[in-house]
Design a protein around this nucleic acid. Structure first.
Length: 343
DNA sequence: TGGGAAAACCGCCAGG
DNA sequence: AACCTGGCGGTTTTCC
């Protein structure tokens, strides 16, 4: 039984958030052996819809699609006006009929305007969180999460947080393994964690999931320099090693040791750029058992050596540094394919 | 760079 | 019945 998704298109919207839903929930992945969705883009009225960027979007489907949908997605839209009575009613009916109702970015204003967020917790783009709370006092706005679910109503924060929410829906419907395959194919992290947060404007707590594993991850992030083995990690959250491995992979898509390796390499980047500590000292500071181990995993993940990385990204090379020529690559964070197991 | 020891990982399965 | 846990044995990965 395939899962049906209806995505709302509107006049004057930015295309990005709508595209997130189409990309994740609309692509046919059956050639890859993955389950998917029946997705339709629908509009309140027929006719061309002008989008940001000066192009038009057109669809033959109307709001009656909401009645057949298991999931209704409302992408970013107007933050000032109210939804029409027809749209508001269709959204309420869909929720009452048991459909998941999902907003991306400022789409939360539309849900709020339809009354669907009254008394419920909601997320939205951080620039508009205050406005949402002011316009809709009955909505419990949470400005610090990537997304939140409240009585079958899902709201996500700014722009790219919609990716996290859509992947969560896939995880809910088809399991973590399938969601991770989706993420890998899109080349995005299957799971945003503390290590990713440093690349974000401000750290964002997680939306939901395994609380014990999340707490463990937060603690690991603060203690990367310490020797950490499976037994210590398992003891920390009072489970067996077997259960830790299983639940860690369920929550993050990777294993504890692989995650640690990737986080330690990520932590080493700042030290390589911002200090003149020798590679041996950097290796020890971020918790590698030896410089050889550090170099091995750094090269595997970053496709260059620590010294070459430092020479490229820490400014001009020092006068006494050896002048070996090496292939140089731009800085990047570890890819999900490296965080996750290959199979 | 090689290879053996140790750790991490995971399928399987029994038990709660 | 559906779900989670954790021990066992074998394979893979890491360590030195």
């Amino acid at each position: 039984v395939s899962h049906r998704v209806a995505v709302l298109a509107r006049e004057g919207s930015a295309p990005f958030e709508l595209s997130i839903a189409v990309e994740i929930l609309g692509l046919d992945r059956t050639p890859s052996g993955l389950p998917g969705y029946d997705l339709v883009v629908c509009a309140e009225q027929p006719g061309p819809l002008r989008q940001t960027g000066g192009f038009t979007l057109q669809t033959d489907h109307g709001l009656e699609e909401f009645r057949h949908a298991d999931t209704v997605v409302v992408p970013a839209g107007d933050t000032r006006g109210d939804p029409s009575p027809a749209l508001a009613g269709a959204l309420r009916d869909a929720h009452a009929a048991g459909a998941r109702v999902v907003s991306l970015c400022t789409g939360s204003f539309t849900l709020a305007g339809a009354g669907l967020l009254d008394g419920r917790e909601a997320a939205t783009h951080w620039m508009y969180a205050d406005l949402l709370a002011a316009r809709f006092p009955r909505v419990r706005v949470n400005p610090d999460v990537l997304w939140v679910e409240s009585d079958g109503v899902f709201t996500s924060a700014g722009s790219a947080a919609g990716i996290d929410l859509c992947l969560h829906l896939v995880r809910t419907d088809y399991g973590a393994a399938v969601a991770n395959s989706y993420a890998r194919r899109m080349v995005v992290p299957p799971y945003r964690d503390g290590g990713q947060a440093q690349f974000i404007e401000r750290p964002m707590p997680l939306g939901a999931g395994d609380a014990a594993v999340h707490e463990l991850i937060a603690w690991l992030g603060e203690n990367l320099h310490r020797p950490l083995d499976l037994a210590a990690m398992a003891a920390r959250i009072h489970v067996s090693e077997r259960t830790l491995i299983r639940r860690f992979r369920e929550a993050t898509g990777t294993s504890p040791a692989q995650w640690l390796l990737a986080q330690r390499v990520a932590a080493s980047l700042a030290m390589l750029e911002g200090s003149r500590e020798p590679v041996e000292a950097v290796a020890a500071a971020v918790g590698f058992p030896s410089a050889a181990s550090f170099r091995h995993h750094f090269a595997r993940i970053m496709r260059t050596s620590p010294t070459a990385y430092r020479r490229t990204f820490a400014g001009a090379p020092g006068p006494d540094e050896p002048g070996r020529m090496r292939e140089l690559r731009p800085r990047r964070a570890p890819e999900p394919s490296e965080l996750a197991q290959a199979g």
